[in-house]
């Protein structure tokens, strides 16, 4: 499973981008998108397209956690979205598969393998929700930084490290 996480500002610009792979089931934490090199811009396109759906779904659900909102079939990418009160959107693109894990990693539990393989299972959903919630906490703290101007790109290395940690922990 490979992930691409973006924080999208209310004016549809990315404030923070982070690409990573799963750390469960012996994953190296490196992203292996199946569309290879082109995934760099393709993921942005897919996320950008999914804003359409986010704009629609946000009015239909009372929750901040909007679950999987979109699916891009050609690369089998799913997009989950978490919406903050100020219309900042946390978008996570997750793509199952990639190269199979190393042969020795048979010890993984059932639940973690289902996260890696099935993007629509309740376990995956729950894991992403936990991830989003954690990122949200960190994000709120970053926003409170007096040196941060609202709407700017988030450059704080601490924020990046915390997001990476959350990714390792839940995904």
């Amino acid at each position: 499973m490979s992930y691409y996480f973006v924080v999208v500002s209310p004016t549809d610009t990315p404030m923070f981008e982070y690409t990573f792979g799963t750390s469960k089931a012996g994953g190296s934490g490196q992203a292996h998108f199946r569309n290879g090199e082109s995934s760099r811009y393709m993921n942005q396109f897919i996320i950008h397209a999914a804003i359409d759906v986010a704009e629609e779904v946000q009015w239909l659900s009372p929750n901040m956690w909007l679950k999987v909102i979109d699916h891009y079939a050609p690369t089998n990418s799913h997009i989950s979205c978490f919406m903050t009160g100020t219309n900042v959107r946390f978008m996570l693109l997750h793509q199952p598969g990639g190269p199979p894990a190393a042969a020795g990693s048979r010890t993984s539990t059932l639940s973690s393998s289902s996260i890696a393989q099935n993007p629509l299972s309740p376990q995956t959903d729950e894991a992403i929700r936990q991830f989003m919630t954690e990122v949200y906490e960190v994000w709120v703290k970053t926003m409170m930084n007096p040196f941060y101007k609202i709407g700017d790109e988030i450059k704080s290395p601490a924020f990046r490290a915390r997001v990476a940690a959350a990714g390792r922990k839940w995904l």
Binding site: T11, P14, F45, H48
Partner: peptide, 10 residues
């Protein structure tokens, strides 16, 4: 959104 400041690679 679609500029070198927004989604760059796109």
């Amino acid at each position: 959104s679609i500029s070198s400041k927004g989604f760059k690679d796109m």
